[in-house]
């Protein structure tokens, strides 16, 4: 947000400094400079209206009651046991699927080292990873309902084999039902974000290791894993934030209830009062932004460290 305000202010306050001379080639000063700043204005205005303003409104609405007066009452709701439990659910679901997705995704990246970077396999895997990681949403929920839903194909196959996966109740529509679909979009995201780090490992390091008498195992233990650890951790954090903010899959699977924070926001937005409070959505949004913001800040911090090895 800071960059935004400076950008906006600068474009207004920047004095025009015409030096009066004609330069044959850019960069030119004077009128051209002012025009360049003006050129930034439409995009800046758009960002203010549709990114800064909505985010600000979402966060501010947590501090306002129905009459428009300042209140910290909604914020106090974040300490409510029900809300705390929701945040807890979101946190463990995100952590579990982030770790599962990160480990599996890293293995896929490792295997992908063995196929040519411009080959058919790599192109197909990249495209599939993009689809599942970024555009699945509702459709992934449907795929899992068709697979392990109450009438799903795999459910019925297992039932024919005498195994009832829903013997303990229809968990697919509860919190545990979210784990498999979430892992399904976490693995591809790991492949997309971790692959550059793994490709950045230089074969020369392996050669140096071999020349100095090391083995394949010692290469990974002493060089590969230590070099990749920061990237791996950063990507795991990104996966955590991704699961924490994900809404569509959960909304399509659990049409009722509010087991995780995004679903709790849905309930708060669609019904008048939750837990006897108005504007709870704003307070929940604030809680969410704090969690995701801290995680993404750590991600950037660690990623910057990790980037030294990718040059």
């Amino acid at each position: 947000m800071t960059t935004l305000t400076t950008e906006g202010e600068l474009s207004r306050e920047r004095p025009s400094a015409p030096d009066g001379t004609e330069h044959p080639a850019p960069p030119r000063r004077g009128a051209s400079r002012v025009a360049a700043w003006l050129g930034l204005a439409p995009f800046a205005a758009y960002i203010v209206a549709f990114l800064a303003l909505p985010t600000g409104l979402a966060l501010a609405s947590g501090f306002v009651d129905s009459a428009g007066a300042l209140t910290f009452d909604n914020l106090a709701a974040l300490g409510d046991p029900v809300i705390l439990a929701t945040f807890g659910n979101s946190a463990w679901l995100s952590l579990l699927t982030a770790v599962l997705g990160a480990v599996t995704g890293a293995l896929v990246c490792y295997a992908l080292l063995g196929v040519p970077e411009t080959g058919t396999v790599r192109t197909a895997v990249d495209a599939a990873a993009g689809v599942f990681a970024q555009f699945g949403g509702v459709m992934l929920a449907f795929a899992f309902i068709a697979t392990i839903g109450l009438k799903g194909v795999v459910t019925q196959l297992l039932l024919a084999a005498g195994i009832d996966i829903f013997a303990g109740g229809p968990w697919i529509y509860e919190l545990p039902g979210l784990i498999l679909p979430y892992v399904f979009f976490q693995i591809p995201l790991m492949v997309i974000t971790f692959m550059p780090a793994l490709s950045g490992l230089k074969p020369q390091w392996a050669e140096a290791n071999l020349t100095l008498g090391g083995t394949r195992a010692s290469f990974w233990l002493r060089i590969g894993i230590p070099v990749l650890a920061p990237s791996f951790l950063a990507c795991t954090l990104l996966l955590f934030a991704n699961a924490f903010s994900s809404y569509a899959t959960a909304a399509a699977l659990a049409s009722q209830g509010s087991q995780i924070v995004p679903l709790q926001i849905r309930t708060a937005l669609t019904s008048e009062t939750v837990l006897g409070r108005e504007n709870l959505a704003g307070a929940l949004a604030l809680g969410m932004i704090v969690v995701v913001g801290v995680v993404m800040w750590l991600y950037t911090l660690i990623q910057r460290q990790a980037a030294r090895w990718q040059r």
Partner: peptide
């Protein structure tokens, strides 16, 4: 504005860190 490049980058990558579900709370009144 070559010196603004990294600031510009952080700005346009910002929506990654702002969940759509949070944005929608503020988009509703807009």
């Amino acid at each position: 504005f070559p010196r603004m490049r990294s600031a510009f980058e952080s700005l346009v990558l910002l929506p990654i860190s702002i969940p759509a579900i949070v944005l929608v709370v503020g988009l509703a009144p807009i």
